[in-house]
Simulated scan of single mutants.
Amino acid sequence: METPIHKSTHRRSRTDGEATRSRIIDAAGQVFAERGYRDATSKEICARAGTNLAAVNYHFGSREGLYLAVVGEVMHHLLELDYLRQVAGSDNSAEEKLSELIEGLVHSLIEERSWHTRVWAREILTPSPLLPQITSHETMPRVEIVLPIITELTGLPADDPDRLYGLLGLISPCLMLILVDPDQPTPIQPIYSRPADEIADRIKRFVFAGLRSLAALPNDR
C-alpha cells in the first residue's frame, strides 16, 4: 500500500510532467508558427521551453510526434471535438447548429489571434509530410460531424456531390480568416477591425444563402 507521501510525490510528478508537456507544446507552437514545420528546430523549441531534447522525446517520442501534438492542440483550440459533438447532438435546428459553430470559430479567429491559427495557416499553404495523418486524425472526424448537419439543412442525400460544395462554402470564408494575416495590407484587412459578431453574421448570411441555393437545384441534373 502506498503511503500518503508516495501518493503526494506521484501527484506532484504527474503535475510537473503535465506542466512540462504543456510548456513544450506552447513553445513549439510559437516556433512552428514563425518558421513552419521544415525550418523549425528542436534546439530553438527546447530553448524557448526551458527544457532539453530528452524531455521532448520523453513526452512526444520525436519531432514529428511533437508537431502532431501541436496540430492536435490547434484543432482542439479552434473546433474542439466534444464541443462539435455536443452541438451536433443538440435538439436545435440544423441552421441553429451551423450558426453556433460559425460564431464560435469566428470569435476564436478574430479575438484571440494566437499561434494556433498561424500554425494551421502554414500547414495549409505549405503542407508538412504529416498532412495525411493530420487529415485522418484531426480533419476528417470534424468533417464527419458537420456533413450530416449540412444534409439535414439542405435535404441533399449523402451521395450527392453538392453536399461537398456546401461544405466548401462553409469552410471557405473561415479559411480566409485563417490564411490572411490581419497585420498585412490586404483588401480584406479592414474586416479584422470589425466586431466578431458582425463578421459571424455576414459569414452566416453567405453560407446559408449558398446552402439554400444548393438545396433548390433541380433533382434531374
Rank of each mutant, 00 (worst) to 15 (best):
P173M: 05
R12K: 14
D181W: 05
G72L: 11
I5A: 14
N92M: 14
D16P: 01
E112S: 10
L168G: 04
D160E: 09
V180D: 13
R118D: 15
E138R: 08
A28Q: 05
Q133N: 07
R142L: 01
R35T: 08
R85Q: 14
H77G: 05
A54Q: 12
H76Y: 12
Y67M: 11
T139V: 15
I102L: 12
Q86L: 13
G210Y: 12
L214T: 03
D26K: 03
P4N: 06
L179F: 02
L125V: 13
Y192D: 03
D91S: 15
A209M: 09
H6G: 01
R194V: 03
K204D: 08
L153G: 12
T126F: 08
V119I: 12
P4D: 04
I191V: 15
A88C: 10
T51A: 10
R202T: 11
E2D: 05
D16S: 09
L164N: 04
D220H: 08
Q133W: 02
G61N: 07
L170W: 15
A158P: 01
P141C: 04
W115Q: 11
Q133P: 00
F208D: 12
T51Y: 09
S128P: 13
K7Q: 13
G61R: 06
E95N: 04
N52F: 11
L179H: 00
R113N: 14
H137L: 08
R63Q: 11
T9S: 12
A69W: 10
S193V: 03
L125G: 04
I110G: 02
L105D: 04
I203P: 01
L53M: 09
E34F: 07
R85H: 13
T139N: 10
P190V: 08
I171C: 08
T151M: 13
G50S: 07
S13P: 00
P195Y: 13
S108V: 09
S93G: 15
V56Y: 08
H107P: 00
L109M: 04
D26V: 12
E73Y: 06
L84S: 00
T15M: 12
A196M: 10
S8F: 05
L68V: 07
I203V: 14
V180A: 13
F208R: 00
P195D: 13
R142G: 01
E64L: 03
V146K: 12
L211A: 07
L147Q: 02
R38T: 06
V143A: 13
L170F: 15
L175E: 09
E144S: 10
R35Y: 13
R63T: 07
V106Y: 14
Q184N: 04
H116C: 09
R163I: 14
S193K: 04
M75Q: 11
K204F: 06
G166Q: 08
H77I: 01
